[in-house]
C-alpha cells in the first residue's frame, strides 16, 4: 500500500476537482504561490547572471526548469472546473496574471539561450510587476 502510494505520488502532483468555491479558492492560492515562486526564482537567476555570478549552462537549465514547472502549474489550474460564477471571476483574474508571467519567463529563457547574460536583468524587469500582481492577488484572497 505504502509502496503504491509513494510511487504514484512521485510522478506528478495531481489536481482533484473543486466542488465548492472554498475549494476552488484554495487551489487558486496554491497555484498563485507556485507561480510566484517560479517568477521570483527566474528574477533572481537573471540578476545573478547579469552580475556575472552564474555561468551559462546553470542559468539556462535553471530557467528552463522554472518555465516547465510554471507551464505545469498553469496547465493544472486550467483543468480545474470552476464551480460557480464567483469562481469564474477568480479564474479570469489569475489567468491573466499567469499568462503574463509565462510570456515574461519565456522572454528571459530566450535571451539566456542566446547567451546575452549581461543584459538579462533588463529582460527580466517586467517580472517584478508580475510578482507584485501575484502578491496582491494572494493578499486579496485573505
Amino acid at each position: 500500500m505504502v509502496v503504491a502510494l509513494a510511487l504514484s505520488a512521485c510522478t506528478r502532483h495531481q489536481v482533484g476537482p473543486a466542488r465548492t468555491f472554498d475549494d476552488y479558492e484554495r487551489k487558486s492560492r496554491t497555484t498563485a504561490e507556485d507561480a510566484l515562486s517560479s517568477v521570483e526564482t527566474v528574477q533572481l537567476l537573471a540578476t545573478t547572471a547579469a552580475q556575472g555570478d552564474a555561468f551559462g549552462p546553470y542559468t539556462n537549465v535553471s530557467i528552463s526548469e522554472q518555465e516547465d514547472s510554471l507551464a505545469d502549474v498553469v496547465g493544472d489550474y486550467g483543468s480545474i472546473q470552476p464551480p460557480d460564477a464567483h469562481a469564474d471571476e477568480l479564474r479570469a483574474q489569475l489567468d491573466a496574471l499567469l499568462s503574463s508571467a509565462t510570456d515574461h519567463v519565456a522572454a528571459v529563457r530566450i535571451a539566456a539561450r542566446r547567451g546575452t547574460l549581461a543584459g538579462l536583468d533588463q529582460v527580466a524587469a517586467p517580472l517584478a510587476a508580475d510578482s507584485d500582481a501575484l502578491n496582491a492577488f494572494l493578499e486579496s484572497l485573505k
Binding site: E33, D34, T41, T48, D53, F55, S62, S69
Partner: peptide, 28 residues
C-alpha cells in the same frame, strides 16, 4: 522572495548570488 524549493538548482542559487561564479562551480 517566497521561493518554494522544488528543484535542485534552487538549492545552489543562494551560493551563486552571494559568492558568485566560483562559488557556484564549487557548490556544483
Amino acid at each position: 522572495r517566497h521561493i518554494i524549493v522544488e528543484q535542485l538548482s534552487q538549492v545552489a542559487l543562494p551560493v551563486a548570488s552571494a559568492v558568485g561564479r566560483l562559488g557556484l562551480a564549487i557548490v556544483l
